[in-house]
Design a protein around this nucleic acid. Sequence first.
DNA 1: TTGAAAGCGGTACCAC
DNA 2: GTGGTACCGCTTTCAA
Lengths: 339, 339
Amino acid sequence: MATMQDVATRAGVSAKTVSRVFNDDPNVTEKTRAKVQAVMADMNYRPNMLARRFREGKDSAIGIAVPNIGDPFFATIIRTIEQLAMERGMFVFVTTLGQDPALEEQRVERLMRRNISGMVIAPVAGDQSYLKSWGSSVPTVFVDREASNIEGSSVFVDDELHAAEAVAHLISHGHERIAFVGDDTSLITTKKRLAGYRSALTAAGIAHDTGLELMDARLLSFGYVDRSIADDHVQMLLALPEAPTAIFGANALCSMGLAAALHRAHRGEIAFVSFGDFPMADALTPAVTVIDQNPEGLARLTGEILFEQMDGMVAGPVSKVLRLLLIERGSGELPPFTS
Amino acid sequence: MATMQDVATRAGVSAKTVSRVFNDDPNVTEKTRAKVQAVMADMNYRPNMLARRFREGKDSAIGIAVPNIGDPFFATIIRTIEQLAMERGMFVFVTTLGQDPALEEQRVERLMRRNISGMVIAPVAGDQSYLKSWGSSVPTVFVDREASNIEGSSVFVDDELHAAEAVAHLISHGHERIAFVGDDTSLITTKKRLAGYRSALTAAGIAHDTGLELMDARLLSFGYVDRSIADDHVQMLLALPEAPTAIFGANALCSMGLAAALHRAHRGEIAFVSFGDFPMADALTPAVTVIDQNPEGLARLTGEILFEQMDGMVAGPVSKVLRLLLIERGSGELPPFTS
DNA sequence: TTGAAAGCGGTACCAC
DNA sequence: GTGGTACCGCTTTCAA
């Protein structure tokens, strides 16, 4: 691979002049410029980006760390951020965090060590203080969930509020026995959604029954829903003496598993609302009513804040809360069914 | 940020010794090692990866270029490759190619310029000769589709064979009027699947009717299915004088749009088979019969070949063809319905 | 307008 | 076992 010096030698100029030509420095004679460009083309010169970045001390790439790329919610976030990054000529590193909090620190740190220009994290751990040792050298924005034990910019939603709205929606259609099904208890978003679920029940004068609150990390194995566990939970819930007439799915992936399990159990009469939209939700029978988690909107806001921070246009941490909307599709409007 | 030299000065040794300690070189006294490690910890020393990579002349990252991250098929491929890369301590760059062939060259070249260690491409263009100028400096594996006008390793499937199997499945259940719906005509996989569709009809003595072969790139806008266009196509097909009694969806994304459109049109009696599985396909009514495109299997094979090439364990290009299976779920077994 | 030299932070090579 | 030195390819600084 030809270097700048090779080109310089062949063109009979100094390396610096080649550098000038390559970087469109105006202080070069047209004649010199033409000559150098001819040689560059002839030698198929390509600048060594590793050298350039080393010189600049920064990698023009941004990192994205999410729990699971296979989750359509996060896939859309990645897709949107990648598009925004491309418009600015930057590439993105993508990494999966899984459910294990220990993995988060390890992977995020490894990414930081690459001297990236920016970082987007949808954290899974309950503590991000490990980022403190990096100071503010790398602009970082947390998405979907706020960071804990550290100041940082973030874009998220009011999980408690929207969960309460979803449950209130079910209550308004006559349901009183409403189950909550989630996967990971340790996740802050799950906790908040559970709180919202309870507060909606309380507001309606319904005592909450912990027997209807189901949380099982095994629901997700390798980032996908475990069919048989979903089936077990649905069977178990519906076999209760006072079985629920409605279910609230705490996130899109859980809801996908639940909707499929309800379908397999031929229990389409059970009302259902999902926190987070998912593919084909509108094509199921009944179509699934959801809180639209708007991953694209979240990602766009995240990108805006990130790039502003990278450009040094903003000083301290910024937090934005995105308002979500309920999409009524039918499954949440089913009346309570009693056999 | 402390450099190796800083650590060396403070520890009263040379930079080289610090380097040795850091890289677990056995030729260091325990005493020296301990001292250096203490200073490293004290100064919170982190190696400058940019410098290291510059020295090595290679970035320990691999690039993945796919048409669309939002497509569950490609999301799974990325997810699997990322996992394999992580096990080897490498990061992945992800980039979207879209439908525009010109974009492919531009983005892949930009990725190559980063001196990555390996590259995985699901090409969208009909010509990959632009890669020739890179020689064999970067191990590259094409996934899902073979490369054109260039020798290269690839992992793909027999699109024609499996499309024919899918259509034969419909024919065996009595269908004769079978529509083919795809998005991008220029894509080699679409062409092969169309060929398979036609050959299955021919083999059964059914003349193919180009009026039933629908290809419209507008079906996918911004990487997602355009609802109204999907609705239009379904309406149009079903309003034909001799309307089809079955539909073959040429890829997962199209099929998702079609299944949803059929649902909205309340035409669940139309038989349907998809090339490519998709989320919730088994939870629809009727559940959708698919050719399981096995993205995880494709990605694993791709990773194996890629890493072998990166390790220099294999010389020339390798191609592997993965055998796919039909998953019967019901929609393909529907008898022809005549109103 | 152009060039020479220094240096970014590591690592390979060769002395000692 | 340890240190000096050169060098990776490019850009900045300063001089010509």
